[in-house]
C-alpha cells in the first residue's frame, strides 16, 4: 500500500465532498420534480422549501395529463418525427461517411469541403426558413426531418470509425470480387454496429428534443411535437385544457402538480433508456474527439 501524506488525505476528502455535492446538485432538481408531481396539490401549495419526499400521494395530476388528447397526439407526432428522422439521417450519414472513408475518390474532395464549411458557416435562420418555404415544405413532416439529416460532427465520427477498420478487409473484398454496395452492407455495417447505435442515438435525442424548427415550420396544432406542446403547458402556463374537470378553487394548485407531472411524462422515456445507453453516448464523444 502506498503511503498517503496528510495533505493528500485532506485533498481526497475535500474532493469527495465536492463531488458528492455535485451529484446532489445534478440529481436533486429532478427528484424535486418527481416528488412534487406525486404530491397532494393543496399540500404542495402551502409547502415551502426543499422536498425530500412526496407530500401525500396523489396521482390525480398524472390522470389529468394522460387523459389529455393533445399529450397523446403530440407524443405520437414526436415518435413519428424521431423514427423517420433518425432513419433518414442514419442513411444519409452512412452514405456520406462511406464515401469519405474510401481512398482516392475524386468526389470526396467536394464532399469534404461541403462538410467542413458547414461546420463553420451556414445560411442562417432566415435564408433557411425562406428556402424551406420556397420548397412548400411548411406544415409538412419534411421540414422537420430533412434539414437536420446530415450533421457534420456525426459524419466525422462515423467516417473515423469506418476508416479505422483494417485495410485487409478491403483487400479481401477486392479478391472476392464483391461489389462496393455489398462491401458496405455486408462487411462495414455489421462491423460498425456500435458506432451506428451511437449516431442513431445522437440523431434520435436531437429530434426528440427539437422544438424550434417545429415552432417556425409548423402551425397546425395537430402536427405539434411533444416539446412544442410542452411549451404551451409549461412555459406559457396554459394548463386550462387539462383542468376542465377540476373545481375552480383548486385550479391553481392542481395546475402546479400537472406541470410537474407533464415534465415527468415527457422525460421518462429518455430517463429510462439513459442508464443502459450511457456508455454508447460516451463512446461517441470519445471517437469524435480522437480526430475531431
Amino acid at each position: 500500500m502506498k503511503r498517503v501524506s496528510t495533505g493528500d488525505k485532506i485533498f481526497y476528502i475535500v474532493n469527495n465532498i465536492i463531488l458528492f455535492l455535485m451529484i446532489a446538485v445534478c440529481v436533486y432538481p429532478l427528484l424535486y420534480v418527481i416528488f412534487a408531481s406525486f404530491s397532494k396539490p393543496d399540500k404542495l401549495m402551502q409547502f415551502s422549501g426543499a422536498l425530500l419526499y412526496p407530500l401525500g400521494f396523489d396521482t390525480g395530476a398524472y390522470k389529468e395529463v394522460l387523459s389529455n388528447s393533445m399529450v397523446w397526439t403530440s407524443y405520437l407526432n414526436t415518435i413519428i418525427y424521431v423514427v423517420f428522422g433518425t432513419l433518414t439521417a442514419l442513411i444519409m450519414t452512412i452514405l456520406s461517411a462511406y464515401i469519405l472513408s474510401r481512398r482516392g475518390i475524386k468526389i470526396k474532395k467536394l464532399l469534404n469541403v461541403l462538410l467542413i464549411s458547414s461546420m463553420f458557416f451556414s445560411g442562417g435562420m432566415i435564408p433557411t426558413y425562406i428556402t424551406i418555404k420556397s420548397y412548400h415544405m411548411l406544415n409538412t413532416i419534411w421540414a422537420i426531418i430533412l434539414p437536420p439529416a446530415i450533421s457534420a460532427m456525426n459524419v466525422i465520427v462515423m467516417r473515423t470509425s469506418f476508416a479505422a477498420l483494417p485495410p485487409s478487409l478491403e483487400e479481401a473484398a477486392a479478391i472476392d470480387g464483391i461489389s462496393e454496395y455489398q462491401f458496405l452492407v455486408k462487411m462495414i455495417l455489421p462491423l460498425s454496429k456500435s458506432v451506428l447505435a451511437v449516431i442513431a442515438l445522437y440523431y434520435g435525442v436531437a429530434l426528440w428534443n427539437s422544438w424550434f424548427s417545429a415552432a417556425i415550420y409548423l402551425d397546425k396544432r395537430s402536427m405539434y411535437p411533444l416539446q412544442l406542446y410542452l411549451r404551451e403547458v409549461l412555459i406559457n402556463s396554459s394548463t386550462d385544457s387539462m383542468t376542465t374537470g377540476v373545481a375552480e378553487g383548486d385550479k391553481v394548485a392542481v395546475s402546479e402538480t400537472i406541470k410537474y407531472a407533464t415534465i415527468i411524462v415527457s422525460t421518462v422515456p429518455i430517463l429510462c433508456v439513459y442508464p443502459f445507453l450511457q456508455k454508447y453516448f460516451v463512446k461517441g464523444v470519445m471517437v469524435g474527439s480522437v480526430k475531431g
Partner: peptide
C-alpha cells in the same frame, strides 16, 4: 444526466 433533459423541460 442533465444533458439528456430537453431545453424545453
Amino acid at each position: 444526466l442533465p444533458h439528456f433533459i430537453s431545453i424545453m423541460v
